[in-house]
């Protein structure tokens, strides 16, 4: 981060800065500041307050009173909550493993500045720009067990496709597939940019030393890419955990509760059952985990690699 505040600024300049510039600069920040406080920080504090209250909108128009940590205790013991956590871990874990592997491979395979590679890259990033709700409906059409394209293609290979969206386990796989289809391009892009920035002479030196391509990757490139790969992993982990849209339109949480993720669970608990207290409490349990991950990203980004 470049902070050239002191460089070249004489005393009179900084005096000018204080008297003439600073009021304007402060004024510039005010609108953004007000919106962020009103739309982000106030609701955040409000939700912390709600998490300690007993309030179900369908039973009462106002909070029924302070209940301490009762909401948290109830939620942690709730079987749907636990199931949602398990689903989130499975979905995000599976999707991350797939998209990191695929993304890194594709980043290597699409290296280069030829028009052909550029065209391939442009094409491959398209899933990422599609609205997640639309991607969900798209895969809902594709994965239809009887008349869907996926099972038809599988049958051409002599495989009998599963009941993708109707079977609890396959529904989880479906969500993983969708997340992988949509977000592998992200890994491809980030890793591709990183590979391009590795100095050529490093690779040439390795080649001259007689290292095979695979060994060069393992001992020269991978260590250089590692920090960025971890960063990408945490990025994708958070985004995948927080996504609601695609599950909403692909499985609607079903069948039953089998694809309820933590985000989906909190959303329905709060905005469909209107159990504000319980929803706020579970969202704060989620928040603790997310904050730790965000802290990790922050710490990583500020280190000089």
């Amino acid at each position: 981060m470049s902070l050239s505040a002191a460089s070249g600024s004489t005393k009179s300049q900084s005096d000018w800065h204080r008297r003439h510039d600073l009021p304007w600069l402060l004024l510039f920040v005010v609108p953004a500041f007000i919106i962020v406080v009103a739309v982000q920080f106030y609701p955040l504090v409000y939700s912390a307050f709600l998490s300690l209250q007993d309030w179900v909108l369908t039973e009462s128009q106002t909070p029924k009173g302070f209940v301490g940590l009762e909401n948290f205790v109830k939620e942690l013991g709730d079987s749907t909550f636990q199931r949602s956590v398990r689903n989130s871990v499975l979905i995000t874990g599976g999707a991350l493993a797939l998209q990191m592997t695929l993304g890194i491979c594709l980043a290597y395979l699409t290296m280069g500045a030829s028009w052909r590679m550029r065209a391939v890259r442009t094409l491959l990033i398209l899933p990422m720009v599609i609205a997640p709700v639309a991607a969900g409906t798209l895969w809902r059409i594709l994965l239809n067990s009887r008349a869907g394209l996926v099972n038809h293609l599988l049958s051409l290979l002599g495989i009998k496709g599963p009941e993708w969206l109707a079977h609890p386990d396959w529904a989880i796989v479906s969500v993983i597939l969708l997340d992988t289809w949509q977000w592998t391009p992200f890994v491809l892009l980030v890793v591709g940019a990183a590979i391009a920035s590795i100095p050529d002479d490093l690779l040439e030196a390795a080649a001259i030393d007689g290292a095979s391509r695979w060994k060069t990757f393992l001992y020269v490139e991978l260590p250089l890419l590692m920090p960025l790969l971890l960063l990408t992993l945490v990025f994708r982990m958070l985004e995948s955990l927080l996504s609601l849209d695609s599950i909403y339109s692909l499985t609607f949480g079903g069948p039953g509760y089998s694809t309820y993720t933590l985000t989906y669970y909190i959303y329905t608990l709060g905005l469909r059952s209107f159990n504000f207290g319980a929803a706020a409490a579970s969202s704060w349990i989620f928040m603790v985990f997310a904050s730790l991950s965000i802290g990790l990203v922050f710490w990583y980004q500020r280190r000089d690699w």
Binding site: L262, I266, Y267, A280, S283, S293, I294, V297, F298
Partner: peptide, 19 residues
């Protein structure tokens, strides 16, 4: 900025609805 980008937004959606 980083926090706002990545915290579980579903946390603030309910109070925002109430506001």
């Amino acid at each position: 900025f980083l926090f706002i980008r990545f915290y579980p937004r579903v946390t603030t959606v309910i109070p925002y609805f109430l506001v």
